[in-house]
C-alpha cells in the first residue's frame, strides 16, 4: 500500500482525497457491483455483453422497477409495504376480469390504478391514524388483496384485448438494433418522476424528514400525516401500475401471480442502498437494485449448469451483505 503511495503521490492523493457525498456511497457500491457482475458475465459467457442483454434487464423487470420505486417511498419514511405482490396479482385480475366483461381498455386501466391507490390509501390511513405497525397493516392488506383475487375468480383469466396485445408486443428500435418495449419506457419514466418528486418537491423533502425523525418533522411543522399516508397511496399506485405492466407481460390475470414479489422489491430497495430505518436512499439505487437482481437471473440462465434455486440463494446472500454493510455504516456514524 505504502509503496504505491510513494510511487504516484499526486494521482493517489487526488483519488484518496476525493470522497463522494455520503448519500451516494451505497448507490455507487451497487453500481460497482452491477458493472462488475456484468464484467464477469461478459468474460465468462459469450454474448453476455451485448446491449440487448442489458436492455432486456429493463424489459423483463419493468414491473419490478415500478414496484421498487413505490417501496422506496415507503421505506424512506421508515415503513414497509408487504402488500405489493398481492396488489400486483389483484391488478392483473381486475384488468383481465373487466376486459372479459367488455369494458373499454382505458377504463379498465383507470379502474385498476384507482383500486390500487385506494388500497394503499386505506392502509396508510390505518397505519397513521390508528398507529398500527406498517408491517401488520400491510400484512392485512396482502391477505385482503389475495382474498379479493380469489373472489373475482379462482381460475386464470386470459387477456385477449387488442390494445393490451399491441402494447405488449410493440417495441421501439434503438440505434444498434436494440429493441425496447413500452413497458420498460414507462418504468424509466416512473423512476424519473419519483426522483423529481423526492428531490424537487416539498412532499419529497418531507418524506426524507419523516424518515430521519418523525418527531422532529412534526415539531418543524411539516405535514407528517399527509406524507405518511401519501407514501402508502403512492406505493399502492405503483403496485397497480406494476400490475398493469405485469398483465402486459403475462397477458393473463391470475390469483397466484407475483407470489413473493414483495420480497424481491424489498431486496432491490435494500441492495440499492436505501436505509431500512428510513431517511436515506435514492430512487436510482432501487433501479440499480432491480438491475442487479435481473443480472443474477441472466447470469444463471446464461450459465445453464446452475439451477434456478441459486437465484433465491444469491439474492439472500446479497441482501445479507448489504444489510450488514448498512449496519456497520450506520453504527460508525452514530
Amino acid at each position: 500500500m505504502s509503496a504505491v503511495t510513494v510511487g504516484s503521490t499526486s494521482w493517489v492523493d487526488r483519488v484518496k482525497g476525493y470522497s463522494p457525498p455520503q448519500r451516494f456511497v451505497p448507490v455507487i457500491a451497487t453500481f460497482v457491483l452491477f458493472v462488475s457482475m456484468f464484467g464477469v458475465g461478459s468474460i465468462r459467457y459469450e454474448g453476455f455483453a451485448s446491449p440487448q442483454v442489458l436492455v432486456n434487464l429493463l424489459v423483463d423487470n419493468a414491473f419490478l422497477i415500478v414496484l421498487a420505486v413505490g417501496m422506496t417511498f415507503v421505506i424512506l419514511t421508515g415503513g414497509i409495504d408487504l402488500s405489493v405482490g398481492s396488489v400486483v396479482a389483484l391488478s392483473t385480475m381486475i384488468a383481465a376480469a373487466t376486459l372479459r366483461a367488455g369494458w373499454p381498455p382505458v377504463l379498465s386501466m383507470v379502474t385498476v390504478l384507482a383500486v390500487g391507490t385506494l388500497l394503499g390509501l386505506l392502509m396508510g390511513l390505518v397505519i397513521h391514524y390508528f398507529q398500527i405497525q406498517p408491517f401488520i397493516a400491510t400484512l392485512a392488506g396482502m391477505f385482503l388483496a389475495r382474498g379479493l383475487c380469489y373472489l373475482i375468480s379462482v381460475e386464470s383469466i386470459p387477456i385477449r384485448d387488442d390494445l393490451f396485445g399491441s402494447l405488449s408486443s410493440a417495441t421501439i428500435t434503438l440505434p444498434g438494433d436494440v429493441y425496447l418495449t413500452y413497458t420498460a419506457v414507462i418504468a424509466l419514466v416512473v423512476v424519473g418522476v419519483a426522483a423529481w418528486v423526492l428531490h424537487m418537491t416539498r412532499f419529497g423533502r418531507t418524506v426524507y424528514a419523516v424518515g430521519g425523525s418523525e418527531a422532529s418533522a412534526l415539531l418543524m411543522g411539516l405535514r407528517v400525516a399527509r406524507v405518511k399516508v401519501g407514501v402508502y397511496a403512492i406505493s399502492g399506485f405503483c403496485s397497480a401500475l406494476a400490475g398493469l405492466l405485469f398483465s402486459l407481460y403475462m397477458l393473463s390475470g391470475y390469483s397466484l401471480h407475483a407470489v413473493g414479489m414483495e420480497l424481491d422489491a424489498i431486496a432491490a430497495v435494500v441492495i440499492g442502498g436505501t436505509l431500512l430505518t428510513g431517511g436515506r436512499g435514492l430512487v436510482v439505487g432501487s433501479l440499480l437494485g432491480v438491475l442487479v437482481l435481473g443480472a443474477i437471473q441472466t447470469f444463471i440462465s446464461f450459465d445453464g449448469t446452475l439451477s434456478s434455486w441459486w437465484t433465491k440463494i444469491s439474492i439472500g446472500v446479497l441482501l445479507l451483505v448489504f444489510v450488514v454493510m448498512q449496519r456497520f455504516f450506520s453504527r460508525r456514524q452514530s
Binding site: 431486496a267 431500512l276 434455486w309 433465491k312 440463494i313 439472500g316 441482501l319 449496519r327
Partner: peptide, 27 residues
C-alpha cells in the same frame, strides 16, 4: 449480535431458505 432489525435479518433466510431447501432436495 449484529443488531439488525428482526424483520430484515429473518427476511434474508426467508428469501434464501427455500432456495436452500431446493438445494437439499435437488429441486
Amino acid at each position: 449480535v449484529l443488531g439488525i432489525q428482526p424483520i430484515i435479518a429473518t427476511l434474508v433466510l426467508m428469501t434464501a431458505g427455500r432456495g436452500l431447501a431446493m438445494l437439499v432436495t435437488d429441486g
